[in-house]
Design a protein around this nucleic acid. Structure first.
Lengths: 264, 264
DNA sequence: TATAAAGTTTATTAATATTAAACTACTATT
DNA sequence: AATAGTAGTTTAATATTAATAAACTTTATA
């Protein structure tokens, strides 16, 4: 189904991304961490170096990220960065008002991605950093807020395959989820009631582009007990997130050129 | 010798880098340009998308660069950018004084890379933009200026395999080249007398790091006829490049941490 | 709505990536 | 300085896998 040698190659690049690769990584270390045989890994790395994505230092033999990879940011930045920059003050505002963790999310194909986030400022805080939410469209407020406003075709593609059960509250039944999405569409916002992480409650609002398609979402995560113990707290969060989502949506009123990105 | 599926994968990413991929690229376009069969390309692209390096828009089915690729720049930037920024005014100075094209080069393993460049301001100018000089260590002033000051072991690795003959003047004989490198080491600078491009004469000076190893080089390219018709012109260029190379080298006096990068 | 074009899936087979083993180069230790 | 040990490289055999064609599905077009 997937091409193994490509998979290994990209896992290797991931490893460079996620470890301290600034001082180089040895063949042995790559093999140890990723479970490769040294000869196969050597063939692979030679090819990657040939193409300039990595390079091998002549003396130490260690591998480094090649400058070619830097060029990608120049091409990608153009669009996404201006949106993130535009959104930043509004994300900050939610963080200021609530003190809770705030996430700006979007999607690429069927993958949920985090564009930026702010940590909670509270002593008791939800600490989930840049969690890997690749397959958590169905279990997060960020994900559901976007999902609910997509075409049925897009929803189907994103949800195909079994829905991972992250907690006891995760909705893994398709028809249940379908009802949930309808409710979200009606209410205009999504919640995550311990569906992704136990003890964490999130509120998410969609951000629409100039064609009224969901392009991104903002969410605020707080400890569940705060929500249950103080009814007004949820209202406060909802109002703050809703306001920011609307403001961020104004980005598309002026700047966005038709057909630039997401057509889903 | 090299792994084909990896090679194709990275060629595909290159294609995204070098074409206008902002509006997405279709499977057909990828196949047409790179000579792939659609089924094989589809398998490949699915795998790349799985890993988040590309993504496929749900509606248009076109492929886009994934935000994961953007993250690499954040990791790579730390070192290289500050050097390039430091060097910029000195590159600019050569360009101001001579009006000719100026290149700041470095190397990754055995590959010569261009860190930055300035175009000629003259009406008759050497127009070679970001030429692909991957395998031109032996044929450029930038390359030879660094090569001459490397260890014999490093020289050997870089020069192994046949030396490509770019012009009639390209030195493709190893012992001839060895003499040339000795001369460069003695003189302190390299020239490229139509060895890479006909009609183009270049002067290159090495830039040394805090361990007196060649880390980068600056070069200035001008039309050959200017050099031959005016003896003083070459002196002017040499002085300017020499000065800037020395100044850029001062970068390592303060900022560089030991073992950060190149150990060659 | 029909036709064409593009994208996806499948099962087969031809090609290639993986492997172990031999080899080389480098490090550390006595 | 010699040796043992470690890491990296190369090779050639073969077992796996990627490429293929063909069937199929979806999307676009006229």
């Amino acid at each position: 189904m997937s091409v193994k040698s490509i998979s290994k190659t990209l896992d290797t690049l991931d490893y460079f991304l996620n470890s301290n690769s600034i001082k180089g990584i040895s063949l042995k270390e790559i093999c140890d961490h990723l479970g490769f045989k040294k000869s196969a890994a050597h063939h692979m790395l030679s090819t990657i170096c040939d193409k300039g994505y990595l390079y091998q230092d002549l003396k130490s033999k260690k591998y480094f990220l090649g400058s070619k990879l830097k060029k990608f940011s120049e091409v990608i930045d153009l669009n996404a960065n201006s949106f993130i920059n535009f959104a930043e003050p509004f994300i900050k505002k939610i963080n200021d008002v609530t003190g809770e963790a705030v996430h700006l999310a979007s999607f690429e194909g069927t993958r949920l991605i985090t564009l930026s986030m702010l940590e909670s400022t509270h002593p008791v805080r939800v600490d989930h950093g840049f969690l890997n939410k690749d397959n958590a469209f169905h279990a997060t407020a960020s994900g559901k807020a976007m999902l609910a406003f997509m075409s049925e075709a897009s929803q189907k593609k994103i949800l195909k395959g079994k829905l991972e059960k992250f907690t006891n509250h995760t909705i893994i039944n398709l028809s249940q989820l379908s009802n949930e999405l309808k409710r979200i569409k009606k209410n205009g916002f999504a919640t995550d009631d311990e569906e992704f992480q136990p003890g964490v409650y999130c509120v998410g609002y969609p951000i629409f582009d100039d064609e009224q398609k969901p392009f991104a979402s903002v969410s605020c995560s707080s400890p569940k007990f705060k929500i249950t113990s103080d009814k007004k707290y949820l209202e406060k969060i909802k109002n703050s997130v809703k306001f920011s989502a609307l403001e961020i949506g104004k980005y598309f009123k002026k700047t966005r050129k038709k057909g630039d990105k997401h057509a889903a």
